[in-house]
Design a binder for these strands. Structure first.
Lengths: 200, 200
DNA sequence: CCACTATCGGACATTGTGTTCATTAAAAGC
DNA sequence: GCTTTTAATGAACACAATGTCCGATAGTGG
């Protein structure tokens, strides 16, 4: 990390700006926020902001790495190899993802539901797809062909997951995280296993 | 329709504005468009624009009814009752949807891929979910309970479809529409049929 | 042909953006 | 500790786009 080389002030400034942005997003959504709001909340000068970031979106994206990492980690520590037989086999477990977003639902709700913030969901979708693609390819013997290309499966799974997550947050989490995980598995896994080919 | 009551000029003005917006979206994406661009293209006065629409988004949304209708129609004229047995059964056919978007891919690509235009995809998702929910409920005997609530299934199916469609357009349609339809069916139907309950 | 209604177009206030620069404060190097 | 280097400050500025207003003009329906 190049954090070591940085002036303390720089780290402090960036941290303050990021925190200001996040709290503002949770409060009134991304679109309604102005650069003035951000620097007021962070109590920093205008030129300081532009010394670090090109614009509002640049600031947002710079904080995405951390966010995406924190989310992928929720999907990563799970049993990724097929366990059990028949209906209970799963490629990725998402229970702790639903739990995590529930704990921080104010922020995540604003992120998936808000206006002008589609960059976030798209970025998450991209990373999630790549991650899932790795899992799928780990399951496949070399050269094994599937009914549906693994890439398409990965895109589909990431999209289905984010759709359910978005709907769940938008509708104030009408089911517990465990139930959401269960439904996600029930809906997606049969098709995925079938598409992987019957030999598996 | 209240079109009958309207001054010819009004209809003409709205049509021109809509066409201008659509062609501009296809050219440079929604976000980059200014009101000035729109009225220049439509060759109309500034105050005329604001006499009809509150802002850019208002104009966009006013054209959505037509768009959504045209899209739903692609999914509607299809066999909605379960046909055949086993893996080949389907709730909704999407082949003509993929074909239709391919024909107009410039516009649709800008719509699903562009910045600041998430309203469109959200609106389409909402209408699509409702439509699918109707189809599902038509299949279900009264009072039949399912492993996954029909509403969740509908949201999931709409999301999965739009994810695949978006990915397909973003990546310059690497498969023919028929193949996309096939993959969509293979991935989603097994899970949906399982979730509807084994008695069906 | 007349009364009505829509469009025109330029001016205007307003808001937010991103830049610049001289000044002040803090950290790093020695 | 003292100096050099680097960062933050804040006010001023040019610019771009928004949305409003209004008197003049042109098109429509009856």
């Amino acid at each position: 990390m190049k954090n070591e080389k940085m002036d303390r002030r720089v780290r402090r400034t960036r941290r303050l700006l990021n925190e200001a942005l996040m709290s503002l997003i949770a409060e009134k959504g991304y679109e309604a926020i102005t650069v003035q709001n951000i620097i007021d909340r962070a109590d920093l000068g205008r030129s300081t902001f532009y010394a670090h970031y090109r614009d509002k979106e640049d600031l947002l994206l710079s904080g995405m790495d951390e966010l995406v990492h924190s989310l992928l980690w929720r999907v990563e520590g799970m049993p990724m190899e097929a366990e059990g037989e028949g209906e209970s086999r799963r490629i990725l477990s998402t229970q702790s993802l639903f739990r995590h977003t529930q704990e921080q639902h104010r922020l995540y709700k604003a992120m998936v539901g808000g206006r002008g913030i589609d960059v976030i969901v798209k970025t998450i979708h991209d990373h999630l797809s790549s991650h899932i693609l790795e899992q799928i390819e780990r399951l496949l013997p070399d050269g094994q062909t599937t009914l549906v290309p693994p890439l398409v499966m990965a895109v589909y799974l990431a999209g289905a997951l984010l759709t359910l997550l978005t709907w769940w947050l938008d509708n104030d989490m009408p089911y517990p995280p465990e139930r959401m995980e269960e439904m996600f598995q029930q809906l997606t896994m049969p098709g995925v296993w079938a598409a992987l080919g019957t030999t598996l």
